[in-house]
Computed example of a mutant assay.
Amino acid sequence: MLKTILALGLLVFAAPAGAEVPDFPASFETQEITTNGATIHVRVGGAGPAVVLLHGYGETGDMWAPMAADLARDHTVIVPDLRGLGLSSKPESGFDKKTQAGDVAGVLDALKVEEIDLVTHDIGNMVGFAFAAAHPDRTKRFVLIDAPVPGVGPWEEILKNPLLWHFRFGGPDMERLVAGRERIYLDRFWNEFSATPARFTETSREHYAKLYALPGAMHSGFAQFAAFDQDAIDNRAFLAAGGKLTMPVLAIGGEKSFGPMMATVMRAAASDVTEGVVPDSGHWIMEENPEATTKMVRAFLDKAN
């Protein structure tokens, strides 16, 4: 798992001339939904069955723009920024994934949406798992992409990977170290976890670095990781009480990142798991191979309908 990434250098590659961060379709609207002790920035567009897209660390809901444009042809697409990240509020607490699953439920309640398909990446996987476990009646299908889930499957072995040093990096002194140097810190992730770092363009790097330099954003990011021990306790309790998830699950890994390990993780926690691998991609699937990722997600959602 992730072994091919070890050979990657840390050079920053410039984007091709004219490259831009993809925009959501003009038909999408944004809302600020206050719920569960946070104000969540949400993009909503399209019409049809609802699908929620949850981002991870190092990006925001903006990462999903190409997939959202495709799915909006026949879905209502809901794209929040997780609490503390992007344009959502930066509360001092509530970064355990069980609480953030409550954020998602509150957003859906505000939008009067009862049932969803759920597509998640990185930290979004963890929030999505907590939501699906707490609200199986509201989760029709669940797609998880390229990140482990605390306390699930080979979690303890995954933690031993030296590339995951940042899981234990945090606290006030670390925040002071990265203040004003957010781009340096984030470049390390974008480079180390890419199969081809140049595909995480300079324009995207600048865009996300500015969002993570907002007051409270780096604190919130560190808090996402600091909550993993509690998340593991909560997830084991979910599984002990309710058993494995029963909705159809698609577990996707980047070919040069998690690969089939994503399905291995989810088979420990779900009874109906389909394996998927995004070719020619590392961890940043929507930067490195958005076309293949979108096609794989759409095929799963369409097949299950």
Results as ranks from 00 to 15, higher is better:
M1Q: 11
L2A: 07
K3G: 11
T4K: 13
T4G: 12
T4M: 11
L6V: 04
L6Y: 15
V12Y: 07
F13T: 10
F13M: 14
A17V: 08
A17S: 06
P25G: 14
S27V: 01
G37K: 04
A38R: 05
T39N: 06
H41F: 11
V42Y: 00
V44H: 02
V44F: 05
G46E: 11
V52C: 07
E59T: 09
E59R: 07
D62S: 12
A68N: 15
A72P: 02
R73F: 01
H75Y: 13
D81N: 07
D81F: 04
R83C: 08
G84P: 05
L85M: 15
G86I: 02
S88A: 05
K90R: 14
F95M: 11
K98W: 03
T99S: 15
D103Y: 05
D103L: 08
D103S: 07
A105R: 14
H121R: 09
I123H: 09
M126K: 04
V127Y: 02
F129E: 06
F129N: 09
A133C: 10
A134E: 15
A134W: 11
K140D: 09
F142L: 13
F142P: 02
E156N: 15
W165A: 10
R168E: 08
F169V: 01
P172L: 10
M174I: 13
R176L: 12
V178F: 10
I184T: 11
I184D: 13
L186M: 13
L186Q: 09
L186T: 06
R188K: 12
W190I: 04
E192L: 12
F193D: 00
F200A: 04
E202P: 08
K210L: 02
L211D: 03
P215W: 15
D229H: 10
D231I: 01
A232F: 14
A232D: 04
D234A: 15
F238Q: 12
A240W: 03
G243K: 03
K244C: 05
L245W: 04
M247L: 10
V249L: 11
A251W: 04
A251K: 05
A251F: 07
E255F: 00
F258W: 02
G259R: 02
M261W: 00
T264E: 15
A268W: 03
A269G: 01
A270S: 15
S271R: 10
V277Q: 12
S281T: 12
S281W: 12
N289V: 11
A292F: 03
A292M: 06
T294V: 09
T294P: 05
T294F: 06
F300N: 08
F300R: 08
N305H: 10
